[in-house]
Each structure stands twice: as C-alpha cells, then as structure tokens.
C-alpha cells in the first residue's frame, strides 16, 4: 500500500524543538493538544496542572475549545430516549446520602416524640388521638470551599425548621444568613443564624406549600445581615430539601 514507513517511536515528547521559528506558539499549542485530548502521559499531567493554576493557559484552552466546538455545528440534534433522563434523575436524586440519614434517624425520632408530647399537652381534650405527621423533610447544607456544614430538618406540620451546625462557621466579623430558594423566585431571607449550634426558624407558608422544591442556602453577610434583603456575600453552603 504505502512504501517507506518509519518505525513509530513510543514517546511523543519533543516540546520546544518542534518549531523553533514560532516559540511564542508553544503554550498555545500545548493548550490545543490538551483541548483535543492529544496530550499523553507526562504532557497530560503537566497540562492539567497548568490548567488549574495558570489563568492565561486556561484561557488558551478555553479559546481552543471555543474554536473546536464549531466542528459540532453540523451535527444534527437527536432526541434521546426517555430512559436516559430517568437514569440521570435516579443517579443524582433517588438515594439521599447515607451519612445524612445516619445522623438523622435519631433526630427524626426525637422530633416525632416531641411532636407527640407537644400535641398531647396542648390539645388533650380537643384531639384525644394524636396524629403524627408522616412527612419530614431534611437537607444537609454544604459548601466545598467554606467547610460549613449544617443539617436542616423541616417539619411541615409545625411550620418550622430545625438547624444544627456540624462543622465550620462564619468568617471573622461576619454572620451567617439563611435563605430559602424556590425555582424562578428571588431568595427570601429566613434570618441571621445565632451563634449557637442549634436553632429553630419559622418557615413561611409559601415554602411549606412547595417544600419538595425548596433549596436552602447560607451566605456570609455583614453583622446586621444583608442590608437590602438580597444575599451580598459568598454562598457558603447549599442544600436541596428532600423527603426523608
């Protein structure tokens, strides 16, 4: 078929000497190889490291990705079968993280017991049989960078949520403010969290009505809380509410 075929060397390394006439292209070429997936072995590791730490290099990669993506322009869209979306949802949302459940079963038990007691003492004559609400919602608010971790248990029947801080706290001179988020709505402040580890917060009715879509977030704010009623500081922890 084809005549002289030179033996292929095992390695691909020969970085700077490739084209001495265009040394200023070296970085950009390295970025292009990385974006194409052509970098291998030590080159790949070096490029990955640079992508994380070197803004200019990362921008080169982004520029190549932006150029190369045009190769997908004439690829026609194909509607994926429904099972794909179902599988994604199942993977991401069907199994609440075990640590959360592990920590919560005791708490859930306590909460139910206290509900039973409260209901009993409050309405002994009116409600001789105590109804224990079956639904309890919870979430674990976490942020990768902040180290803040807060458990929230929401009790729709009582209309409140109990918070317990597991780890982390407010940065020096700042406070933690709790926010309730519903899809396509502006965040609503549920107030500044007190310094202690455990606290209870009233949950406004509109959130109870849409509790399964509720997300809680904690931002860091100036000592009096966010001045305009919208978060101004960094979001330190986020958690989507789930039914237990």
């Amino acid at each position: 078929m084809v005549a002289a075929r030179v033996a292929i060397p095992a390695r691909v390394h020969e970085p700077v000497t490739l084209s001495p006439d265009t040394p200023d292209f070296d970085d950009d070429f390295q970025a292009a190889e990385f974006a194409l997936g052509l970098a291998e072995g030590a080159d790949l590791a070096a490029a990955q490291q640079r992508a994380r730490t070197d803004n200019t290099f990362a921008a080169h990669i982004a520029a190549w990705q932006e150029r190369f993506v045009a190769m997908t322009d004439d690829i026609a869209p194909v509607t994926p079968p429904r099972r794909v979306k179902k599988a994604v949802v199942k993977t991401l949302f069907s199994t609440p993280p075990i640590p959360l459940l592990d920590r919560l079963w005791v708490w859930k038990g306590l909460t139910l017991a206290s509900l039973v007691a409260a209901a009993y003492f409050a309405f002994p004559l009116v409600r001789p049989t105590v109804e224990v609400p079956s639904e309890i919602y919870a979430t674990q608010l976490k942020g990768e960078a902040s180290g803040l971790e807060v458990l929230a248990v929401l009790d729709p029947a009582r209309g409140d949520l109990a918070l317990r801080r597991i780890a982390g706290g407010a940065p020096e001179g700042r406070v933690l403010e709790l926010w309730a988020l519903l899809p396509e709505q502006a965040p609503v402040s549920l107030g500044v969290l007190p310094e202690g580890d455990v606290t209870r917060v009233t949950l406004p009715a509109q959130f109870i009505a849409q509790i399964s879509q509720l997300t809680l977030a904690i931002s860091d704010e100036p000592p009096q809380g966010a001045p305009q009623g919208v978060p101004t500081g960094a979001i330190l922890a986020v958690g989507a509410v789930e039914e237990l």
Partner: peptide, 18 residues
C-alpha cells in the same frame, strides 16, 4: 488511562483572552 481531556479546566479568575 486518559483523563477526560480539558474537563477539569478551571480558570480561577478573569483572563485576557476570555
């Protein structure tokens, strides 16, 4: 043995070519 190329890309701040 090949990591998803380019996927981990994080530019920590604004950059000239953005």
């Amino acid at each position: 043995d090949i990591d998803t190329p380019g996927f981990e890309l994080i530019a920590p701040g604004p950059s000239p070519e953005q």
